[in-house]
Design a protein around this nucleic acid. Structure first.
Lengths: 214, 214
DNA sequence: GAATTGATTGAGTGCTCACTCAAACAACTG
DNA sequence: CAGTTGTTTGAGTGAGCACTCAATCAATTC
Protein backbone atom coordinates (compact mmCIF):
# COMPACT_ATOMS: atom_id res chain seq x y z
CA UNK A 1 0.00 0.00 0.00
CA UNK A 2 1.06 3.56 -0.64
CA UNK A 3 1.74 5.51 2.51
CA UNK A 4 -0.75 8.06 3.62
CA UNK A 5 1.24 11.19 2.84
CA UNK A 6 1.89 10.03 -0.69
CA UNK A 7 -1.84 9.66 -1.32
CA UNK A 8 -2.48 12.99 0.36
CA UNK A 9 0.04 14.68 -1.89
CA UNK A 10 -1.59 13.26 -5.01
CA UNK A 11 -4.99 14.37 -3.77
CA UNK A 12 -3.68 17.86 -3.07
CA UNK A 13 -2.25 18.04 -6.56
CA UNK A 14 -5.78 17.31 -7.86
CA UNK A 15 -4.55 14.22 -9.65
CA UNK A 16 -7.67 12.31 -8.67
CA UNK A 17 -10.13 15.10 -9.38
CA UNK A 18 -11.60 13.78 -12.62
CA UNK A 19 -11.01 10.09 -12.04
CA UNK A 20 -13.62 7.49 -11.20
CA UNK A 21 -13.13 5.19 -8.22
CA UNK A 22 -11.92 2.44 -10.48
CA UNK A 23 -9.43 4.67 -12.21
CA UNK A 24 -8.01 5.66 -8.84
CA UNK A 25 -7.72 2.02 -7.81
CA UNK A 26 -5.86 1.17 -11.01
CA UNK A 27 -3.67 4.27 -10.70
CA UNK A 28 -2.53 3.59 -7.15
CA UNK A 29 -2.04 -0.12 -7.82
CA UNK A 30 0.08 0.77 -10.83
CA UNK A 31 2.28 3.09 -8.74
CA UNK A 32 2.98 0.25 -6.35
CA UNK A 33 3.75 -2.31 -9.03
CA UNK A 34 5.80 0.02 -11.24
CA UNK A 35 7.82 1.16 -8.22
CA UNK A 36 8.48 -2.40 -7.14
CA UNK A 37 9.43 -4.05 -10.44
CA UNK A 38 9.83 -1.27 -12.96
CA UNK A 39 7.53 -0.43 -15.84
CA UNK A 40 8.88 -3.05 -18.23
CA UNK A 41 8.78 -5.88 -15.69
CA UNK A 42 5.27 -5.02 -14.54
CA UNK A 43 2.36 -6.76 -16.22
CA UNK A 44 -1.07 -5.25 -16.71
CA UNK A 45 -2.50 -8.49 -15.35
CA UNK A 46 -0.74 -7.97 -12.01
CA UNK A 47 -1.81 -4.34 -11.79
CA UNK A 48 -5.43 -5.34 -12.45
CA UNK A 49 -5.22 -8.03 -9.78
CA UNK A 50 -3.78 -5.62 -7.22
CA UNK A 51 -6.45 -3.06 -8.09
CA UNK A 52 -9.10 -5.79 -7.78
CA UNK A 53 -10.45 -4.98 -11.21
CA UNK A 54 -10.68 -6.73 -14.58
CA UNK A 55 -7.73 -6.22 -16.87
CA UNK A 56 -9.84 -4.64 -19.58
CA UNK A 57 -10.53 -1.63 -17.38
CA UNK A 58 -6.92 -0.51 -17.62
CA UNK A 59 -7.26 -0.12 -21.37
CA UNK A 60 -10.68 1.50 -21.40
CA UNK A 61 -9.50 4.09 -18.88
CA UNK A 62 -5.85 4.71 -19.80
CA UNK A 63 -5.88 3.50 -23.47
CA UNK A 64 -2.70 1.44 -23.01
CA UNK A 65 0.08 0.59 -20.59
CA UNK A 66 2.10 3.63 -21.59
CA UNK A 67 -0.89 5.87 -20.98
CA UNK A 68 -0.99 4.59 -17.44
CA UNK A 69 2.72 5.33 -17.00
CA UNK A 70 2.32 8.83 -18.39
CA UNK A 71 -0.59 9.54 -16.07
CA UNK A 72 1.72 8.70 -13.18
CA UNK A 73 4.85 10.46 -14.37
CA UNK A 74 3.36 13.74 -15.56
CA UNK A 75 2.43 15.15 -12.12
CA UNK A 76 5.90 14.33 -10.73
CA UNK A 77 7.66 15.83 -13.71
CA UNK A 78 5.71 19.03 -13.19
CA UNK A 79 6.53 19.32 -9.50
CA UNK A 80 10.03 17.90 -9.19
CA UNK A 81 11.61 21.30 -9.77
CA UNK A 82 9.63 23.65 -7.57
CA UNK A 83 8.42 26.87 -9.13
CA UNK A 84 8.63 28.55 -5.79
CA UNK A 85 10.07 27.66 -2.41
CA UNK A 86 7.37 26.39 -0.12
CA UNK A 87 8.68 28.43 2.80
CA UNK A 88 7.94 31.59 0.82
CA UNK A 89 4.32 31.69 -0.23
CA UNK A 90 2.64 34.14 -2.58
CA UNK A 91 1.53 36.29 0.30
CA UNK A 92 5.06 36.30 1.69
CA UNK A 93 7.31 36.63 -1.35
CA UNK A 94 11.01 35.83 -1.38
CA UNK A 95 12.74 38.75 0.34
CA UNK A 96 15.31 40.85 -1.48
CA UNK A 97 17.83 40.48 1.33
CA UNK A 98 17.71 36.66 1.26
CA UNK A 99 20.96 35.22 2.56
CA UNK A 100 22.73 32.41 0.73
CA UNK A 101 22.19 30.16 3.71
CA UNK A 102 18.45 30.85 3.84
CA UNK A 103 18.15 30.22 0.13
CA UNK A 104 20.06 26.94 0.08
CA UNK A 105 18.56 25.72 3.34
CA UNK A 106 14.96 26.27 2.27
CA UNK A 107 15.55 24.74 -1.18
CA UNK A 108 17.25 21.61 0.15
CA UNK A 109 14.80 21.02 2.98
CA UNK A 110 11.81 21.65 0.76
CA UNK A 111 13.05 18.96 -1.63
CA UNK A 112 13.82 16.53 1.17
CA UNK A 113 10.21 16.85 2.30
CA UNK A 114 9.11 16.27 -1.27
CA UNK A 115 11.28 13.15 -1.39
CA UNK A 116 9.82 11.81 1.85
CA UNK A 117 6.28 12.25 0.54
CA UNK A 118 6.79 10.94 -3.01
CA UNK A 119 9.18 8.02 -2.83
CA UNK A 120 7.30 5.68 -5.12
CA UNK A 121 6.46 8.09 -7.89
CA UNK A 122 9.95 9.58 -7.74
CA UNK A 123 11.40 6.10 -8.11
CA UNK A 124 9.24 5.46 -11.17
CA UNK A 125 10.12 8.84 -12.64
CA UNK A 126 13.87 8.47 -12.16
CA UNK A 127 13.92 4.87 -13.38
CA UNK A 128 12.07 5.66 -16.58
CA UNK A 129 14.06 8.84 -17.24
CA UNK A 130 17.21 6.74 -17.03
CA UNK A 131 15.90 3.79 -18.96
CA UNK A 132 13.87 5.25 -21.76
CA UNK A 133 15.10 7.90 -24.15
CA UNK A 134 11.55 8.67 -25.25
CA UNK A 135 10.48 9.50 -21.70
CA UNK A 136 13.59 11.66 -21.37
CA UNK A 137 12.79 13.68 -24.48
CA UNK A 138 9.13 13.92 -23.56
CA UNK A 139 9.70 15.46 -20.13
CA UNK A 140 12.76 17.51 -20.97
CA UNK A 141 10.62 19.58 -23.32
CA UNK A 142 8.05 20.11 -20.60
CA UNK A 143 10.63 21.45 -18.17
CA UNK A 144 8.83 24.33 -16.53
CA UNK A 145 9.93 27.74 -17.74
CA UNK A 146 8.55 29.18 -14.54
CA UNK A 147 11.18 27.27 -12.61
CA UNK A 148 13.99 28.62 -14.74
CA UNK A 149 12.74 32.15 -14.24
CA UNK A 150 12.43 32.15 -10.48
CA UNK A 151 15.67 30.27 -9.91
CA UNK A 152 17.54 32.51 -12.34
CA UNK A 153 16.15 35.60 -10.65
CA UNK A 154 17.21 34.33 -7.26
CA UNK A 155 20.68 33.38 -8.39
CA UNK A 156 21.18 36.68 -10.20
CA UNK A 157 20.08 38.58 -7.13
CA UNK A 158 22.47 36.65 -4.89
CA UNK A 159 25.30 37.19 -7.34
CA UNK A 160 24.53 40.91 -7.73
CA UNK A 161 24.68 41.40 -3.97
CA UNK A 162 27.95 39.45 -3.78
CA UNK A 163 26.46 36.68 -1.71
CA UNK A 164 27.27 33.99 -4.25
CA UNK A 165 30.14 33.07 -6.58
CA UNK A 166 29.89 34.54 -10.02
CA UNK A 167 29.69 31.27 -11.93
CA UNK A 168 27.21 30.40 -14.69
CA UNK A 169 23.75 29.79 -13.30
CA UNK A 170 23.77 26.41 -15.00
CA UNK A 171 26.92 25.39 -13.13
CA UNK A 172 25.51 26.58 -9.80
CA UNK A 173 22.28 24.71 -10.42
CA UNK A 174 24.13 21.56 -11.36
CA UNK A 175 26.12 21.71 -8.13
CA UNK A 176 22.99 22.30 -6.03
CA UNK A 177 20.93 19.61 -7.72
CA UNK A 178 23.79 17.12 -7.67
CA UNK A 179 23.92 17.26 -3.89
CA UNK A 180 20.14 17.01 -3.59
CA UNK A 181 20.09 14.23 -6.19
CA UNK A 182 22.78 12.31 -4.35
CA UNK A 183 20.64 12.17 -1.24
CA UNK A 184 17.54 11.30 -3.25
CA UNK A 185 19.27 8.39 -4.98
CA UNK A 186 20.84 7.11 -1.76
CA UNK A 187 17.43 7.09 -0.17
CA UNK A 188 15.33 5.69 -2.98
CA UNK A 189 17.68 3.07 -4.36
CA UNK A 190 19.86 2.20 -1.36
CA UNK A 191 17.44 2.92 1.50
CA UNK A 192 19.86 5.27 3.23
CA UNK A 193 17.62 7.67 5.08
CA UNK A 194 19.15 11.18 5.14
CA UNK A 195 19.66 12.18 8.76
CA UNK A 196 19.12 15.75 9.89
CA UNK A 197 22.83 15.98 10.47
CA UNK A 198 23.66 14.80 6.95
CA UNK A 199 21.15 17.23 5.43
CA UNK A 200 22.57 20.08 7.44
CA UNK A 201 26.08 19.17 6.38
CA UNK A 202 24.96 19.09 2.77
CA UNK A 203 23.48 22.56 3.23
CA UNK A 204 26.66 23.76 4.91
CA UNK A 205 28.74 22.27 2.11
CA UNK A 206 26.66 24.07 -0.51
CA UNK A 207 26.79 27.38 1.33
CA UNK A 208 30.55 27.17 1.60
CA UNK A 209 30.92 25.93 -1.97
CA UNK A 210 28.95 28.87 -3.35
CA UNK A 211 30.37 31.49 -1.01
CA UNK A 212 32.12 34.17 -3.07
CA UNK A 213 34.59 35.13 -0.34
CA UNK A 214 37.22 32.43 -0.58
CA UNK B 1 30.36 1.17 -33.33
CA UNK B 2 32.09 1.63 -30.03
CA UNK B 3 34.67 4.37 -30.02
CA UNK B 4 38.31 3.44 -30.08
CA UNK B 5 39.20 4.43 -26.51
CA UNK B 6 36.35 2.39 -25.11
CA UNK B 7 37.62 -0.72 -26.85
CA UNK B 8 41.16 0.10 -25.77
CA UNK B 9 40.05 0.37 -22.15
CA UNK B 10 38.35 -3.00 -22.27
CA UNK B 11 41.43 -4.53 -23.85
CA UNK B 12 43.65 -3.00 -21.15
CA UNK B 13 41.39 -4.42 -18.46
CA UNK B 14 42.00 -7.84 -20.02
CA UNK B 15 38.30 -8.32 -20.57
CA UNK B 16 38.93 -9.93 -23.95
CA UNK B 17 41.84 -12.09 -22.84
CA UNK B 18 40.08 -15.45 -22.71
CA UNK B 19 37.40 -14.74 -25.27
CA UNK B 20 37.19 -16.10 -28.80
CA UNK B 21 36.70 -13.76 -31.74
CA UNK B 22 33.02 -14.59 -31.82
CA UNK B 23 32.57 -13.91 -28.12
CA UNK B 24 34.18 -10.51 -28.57
CA UNK B 25 31.89 -9.74 -31.50
CA UNK B 26 28.83 -10.66 -29.44
CA UNK B 27 30.14 -8.77 -26.42
CA UNK B 28 30.77 -5.49 -28.23
CA UNK B 29 27.52 -5.75 -30.20
CA UNK B 30 25.66 -6.28 -26.92
CA UNK B 31 27.25 -3.18 -25.39
CA UNK B 32 25.99 -1.12 -28.30
CA UNK B 33 22.47 -2.52 -28.24
CA UNK B 34 22.09 -2.49 -24.45
CA UNK B 35 23.36 1.09 -24.29
CA UNK B 36 20.98 2.19 -27.02
CA UNK B 37 17.73 0.54 -25.94
CA UNK B 38 18.35 -0.84 -22.45
CA UNK B 39 18.71 -4.47 -21.45
CA UNK B 40 15.00 -5.24 -21.32
CA UNK B 41 14.20 -3.65 -24.67
CA UNK B 42 17.11 -5.34 -26.41
CA UNK B 43 16.51 -8.67 -28.11
CA UNK B 44 19.06 -11.43 -28.46
CA UNK B 45 18.07 -11.61 -32.11
CA UNK B 46 19.15 -8.02 -32.71
CA UNK B 47 22.43 -8.51 -30.86
CA UNK B 48 23.20 -11.60 -32.94
CA UNK B 49 22.40 -9.71 -36.12
CA UNK B 50 24.66 -6.79 -35.15
CA UNK B 51 27.44 -9.23 -34.22
CA UNK B 52 26.92 -11.00 -37.56
CA UNK B 53 26.56 -14.32 -35.79
CA UNK B 54 23.80 -16.91 -35.30
CA UNK B 55 21.61 -16.36 -32.25
CA UNK B 56 22.53 -19.71 -30.73
CA UNK B 57 26.12 -18.54 -30.19
CA UNK B 58 25.00 -16.08 -27.55
CA UNK B 59 23.68 -18.91 -25.41
CA UNK B 60 26.54 -21.32 -25.95
CA UNK B 61 29.03 -18.63 -24.96
CA UNK B 62 27.21 -16.62 -22.27
CA UNK B 63 24.61 -19.24 -21.12
CA UNK B 64 21.76 -16.72 -21.25
CA UNK B 65 20.89 -13.07 -21.81
CA UNK B 66 21.58 -12.19 -18.20
CA UNK B 67 25.01 -13.85 -18.41
CA UNK B 68 25.82 -11.50 -21.25
CA UNK B 69 24.71 -8.51 -19.18
CA UNK B 70 26.79 -9.64 -16.22
CA UNK B 71 29.86 -10.10 -18.39
CA UNK B 72 29.48 -6.46 -19.40
CA UNK B 73 28.63 -4.97 -16.03
CA UNK B 74 31.18 -6.77 -13.87
CA UNK B 75 34.30 -5.01 -15.17
CA UNK B 76 32.64 -1.58 -14.79
CA UNK B 77 31.42 -2.36 -11.30
CA UNK B 78 34.94 -3.30 -10.32
CA UNK B 79 36.51 -0.13 -11.66
CA UNK B 80 33.90 2.56 -11.10
CA UNK B 81 35.28 3.36 -7.67
CA UNK B 82 39.02 3.54 -8.17
CA UNK B 83 41.17 1.67 -5.68
CA UNK B 84 43.89 4.21 -6.19
CA UNK B 85 44.16 7.56 -7.90
CA UNK B 86 45.69 7.17 -11.32
CA UNK B 87 47.94 10.19 -10.79
CA UNK B 88 49.59 8.37 -7.89
CA UNK B 89 50.94 5.03 -9.03
CA UNK B 90 52.37 2.27 -6.89
CA UNK B 91 55.87 3.53 -7.48
CA UNK B 92 54.83 7.04 -6.51
CA UNK B 93 52.46 6.58 -3.56
CA UNK B 94 50.05 9.19 -2.32
CA UNK B 95 52.15 11.72 -0.36
CA UNK B 96 51.50 12.35 3.31
CA UNK B 97 51.33 16.10 2.78
CA UNK B 98 48.64 15.86 0.12
CA UNK B 99 46.60 19.04 0.00
CA UNK B 100 42.81 18.95 -0.12
CA UNK B 101 42.91 20.57 -3.52
CA UNK B 102 45.32 18.01 -4.93
CA UNK B 103 43.23 15.18 -3.54
CA UNK B 104 39.90 16.43 -4.89
CA UNK B 105 41.35 17.59 -8.18
CA UNK B 106 43.02 14.27 -8.96
CA UNK B 107 39.94 12.26 -7.93
CA UNK B 108 37.50 14.31 -9.98
CA UNK B 109 39.67 14.50 -13.08
CA UNK B 110 40.51 10.82 -12.93
CA UNK B 111 36.80 9.99 -12.91
CA UNK B 112 36.04 12.42 -15.72
CA UNK B 113 38.62 10.61 -17.85
CA UNK B 114 37.01 7.33 -16.91
CA UNK B 115 33.63 8.72 -17.95
CA UNK B 116 34.96 9.87 -21.29
CA UNK B 117 36.37 6.44 -22.01
CA UNK B 118 33.48 4.29 -20.79
CA UNK B 119 30.28 6.05 -21.75
CA UNK B 120 28.39 3.04 -23.08
CA UNK B 121 29.21 0.57 -20.34
CA UNK B 122 28.62 3.24 -17.68
CA UNK B 123 25.22 3.91 -19.18
CA UNK B 124 24.35 0.22 -19.04
CA UNK B 125 25.66 -0.08 -15.50
CA UNK B 126 23.75 2.94 -14.18
CA UNK B 127 20.54 2.02 -16.00
CA UNK B 128 20.49 -1.50 -14.64
CA UNK B 129 21.48 -0.44 -11.13
CA UNK B 130 18.51 1.91 -11.16
CA UNK B 131 16.08 -0.48 -12.80
CA UNK B 132 16.82 -3.83 -11.29
CA UNK B 133 16.96 -4.52 -7.59
CA UNK B 134 18.77 -7.82 -8.19
CA UNK B 135 21.60 -6.08 -10.03
CA UNK B 136 21.76 -3.55 -7.20
CA UNK B 137 22.11 -6.22 -4.54
CA UNK B 138 24.56 -8.19 -6.65
CA UNK B 139 27.04 -5.37 -7.12
CA UNK B 140 26.57 -3.69 -3.78
CA UNK B 141 27.99 -6.79 -2.13
CA UNK B 142 30.96 -6.74 -4.47
CA UNK B 143 31.80 -3.17 -3.58
CA UNK B 144 35.56 -3.22 -3.32
CA UNK B 145 36.89 -3.18 0.24
CA UNK B 146 40.14 -1.92 -1.13
CA UNK B 147 38.40 1.26 -2.21
CA UNK B 148 36.94 1.83 1.24
CA UNK B 149 40.33 1.39 2.80
CA UNK B 150 42.30 3.78 0.66
CA UNK B 151 39.63 6.44 0.63
CA UNK B 152 39.13 6.17 4.39
CA UNK B 153 42.86 6.43 4.96
CA UNK B 154 43.06 9.51 2.80
CA UNK B 155 40.08 11.19 4.41
CA UNK B 156 41.34 10.40 7.92
CA UNK B 157 44.74 11.80 7.06
CA UNK B 158 43.26 15.00 5.67
CA UNK B 159 41.05 15.35 8.73
CA UNK B 160 43.91 14.66 11.16
CA UNK B 161 46.01 17.37 9.59
CA UNK B 162 43.07 19.79 9.70
CA UNK B 163 42.83 20.07 5.96
CA UNK B 164 39.26 18.82 5.84
CA UNK B 165 36.04 19.24 7.82
CA UNK B 166 35.55 16.70 10.56
CA UNK B 167 32.37 15.15 9.18
CA UNK B 168 31.64 11.42 8.84
CA UNK B 169 33.60 9.88 6.01
CA UNK B 170 30.34 8.62 4.58
CA UNK B 171 28.95 12.15 4.40
CA UNK B 172 32.11 13.47 2.78
CA UNK B 173 32.09 10.67 0.24
CA UNK B 174 28.46 11.25 -0.56
CA UNK B 175 29.14 14.92 -1.21
CA UNK B 176 32.13 14.17 -3.43
CA UNK B 177 30.42 11.43 -5.40
CA UNK B 178 27.22 13.44 -5.76
CA UNK B 179 29.09 16.16 -7.61
CA UNK B 180 30.93 13.66 -9.78
CA UNK B 181 27.69 11.73 -10.36
CA UNK B 182 25.86 14.89 -11.36
CA UNK B 183 28.33 15.50 -14.15
CA UNK B 184 28.28 11.85 -15.18
CA UNK B 185 24.49 11.80 -15.46
CA UNK B 186 24.34 15.13 -17.30
CA UNK B 187 26.80 13.78 -19.82
CA UNK B 188 25.47 10.26 -20.31
CA UNK B 189 21.74 10.94 -20.25
CA UNK B 190 21.50 14.55 -21.39
CA UNK B 191 24.60 14.83 -23.58
CA UNK B 192 25.92 17.84 -21.68
CA UNK B 193 29.68 17.58 -22.07
CA UNK B 194 31.47 18.84 -18.96
CA UNK B 195 33.67 21.76 -19.95
CA UNK B 196 37.06 22.25 -18.31
CA UNK B 197 35.65 25.33 -16.66
CA UNK B 198 32.70 23.42 -15.21
CA UNK B 199 34.96 20.65 -13.94
CA UNK B 200 37.28 23.16 -12.32
CA UNK B 201 34.36 24.92 -10.70
CA UNK B 202 33.11 21.60 -9.37
CA UNK B 203 36.57 20.95 -7.93
CA UNK B 204 36.67 24.45 -6.43
CA UNK B 205 33.19 23.95 -4.98
CA UNK B 206 34.25 20.69 -3.33
CA UNK B 207 37.47 22.14 -1.95
CA UNK B 208 35.57 25.04 -0.42
CA UNK B 209 32.76 22.80 0.80
CA UNK B 210 35.17 20.49 2.61
CA UNK B 211 37.49 23.22 3.88
CA UNK B 212 37.56 23.14 7.70
CA UNK B 213 38.32 26.84 8.10
CA UNK B 214 34.95 28.48 7.56
C1' DG C 1 39.62 -39.28 -47.89
C1' DA C 2 37.09 -41.44 -44.19
C1' DA C 3 36.15 -40.74 -39.50
C1' DT C 4 35.74 -38.13 -35.56
C1' DT C 5 35.26 -34.18 -32.96
C1' DG C 6 33.78 -29.70 -32.10
C1' DA C 7 31.71 -25.24 -33.58
C1' DT C 8 27.82 -22.99 -35.82
C1' DT C 9 23.33 -22.50 -37.55
C1' DG C 10 18.50 -20.88 -37.43
C1' DA C 11 13.87 -22.96 -37.68
C1' DG C 12 11.15 -24.41 -34.05
C1' DT C 13 9.03 -24.33 -29.13
C1' DG C 14 6.64 -22.83 -25.33
C1' DC C 15 5.68 -19.03 -22.82
C1' DT C 16 4.29 -14.37 -21.59
C1' DC C 17 2.49 -10.25 -22.69
C1' DA C 18 -0.48 -6.17 -24.18
C1' DC C 19 -4.54 -5.64 -25.98
C1' DT C 20 -9.55 -6.96 -27.96
C1' DC C 21 -14.31 -7.79 -27.85
C1' DA C 22 -18.50 -10.48 -27.33
C1' DA C 23 -21.06 -11.46 -23.65
C1' DA C 24 -22.76 -10.50 -18.91
C1' DC C 25 -24.11 -7.23 -15.86
C1' DA C 26 -25.86 -2.83 -13.74
C1' DA C 27 -28.38 1.35 -13.75
C1' DC C 28 -31.73 3.95 -15.36
C1' DT C 29 -36.24 5.19 -17.90
C1' DG C 30 -41.06 5.31 -19.22
C1' DC D 1 -40.71 -4.99 -15.95
C1' DA D 2 -39.23 -4.43 -20.81
C1' DG D 3 -36.04 -1.67 -23.07
C1' DT D 4 -32.06 0.99 -23.44
C1' DT D 5 -27.62 2.57 -22.42
C1' DG D 6 -23.33 2.35 -20.47
C1' DT D 7 -19.90 -0.40 -17.69
C1' DT D 8 -17.30 -4.43 -16.53
C1' DT D 9 -15.58 -8.85 -17.43
C1' DG D 10 -11.91 -12.23 -18.63
C1' DA D 11 -11.26 -15.82 -22.16
C1' DG D 12 -9.13 -15.37 -26.42
C1' DT D 13 -5.58 -13.57 -29.98
C1' DG D 14 -1.48 -12.57 -32.23
C1' DA D 15 3.03 -11.06 -31.69
C1' DG D 16 7.47 -11.27 -29.73
C1' DC D 17 10.58 -13.17 -26.76
C1' DA D 18 14.52 -16.24 -24.75
C1' DC D 19 16.15 -20.36 -25.37
C1' DT D 20 16.74 -25.41 -27.61
C1' DC D 21 18.55 -28.77 -30.53
C1' DA D 22 18.83 -31.57 -34.70
C1' DA D 23 21.20 -30.75 -38.62
C1' DT D 24 25.08 -28.77 -41.03
C1' DC D 25 29.60 -27.30 -41.53
C1' DA D 26 34.78 -27.02 -40.50
C1' DA D 27 38.94 -28.77 -38.67
C1' DT D 28 41.74 -32.31 -37.35
C1' DT D 29 43.54 -36.97 -37.20
C1' DC D 30 44.93 -41.44 -38.91
Amino acid sequence: MLNHTELQLLTDAHVFDDMTDKQIKIYTAAIEVFAEKGYLNASTKEIAAKADVAEGNIFSKFTNKRGLLNAIIEPVAKSIFPETLSSFTDSEPIPKDLSLHEFVDSLVKDRMDFLEDNQDVLKIFISEMVYDDQVRQQYLSKFPDAYWHTINDNLNLLKATHKMVNWDNWEIMQIMWSLIGGMVISFIFFHIQPTDKAVNHAVAALVKALNPRL
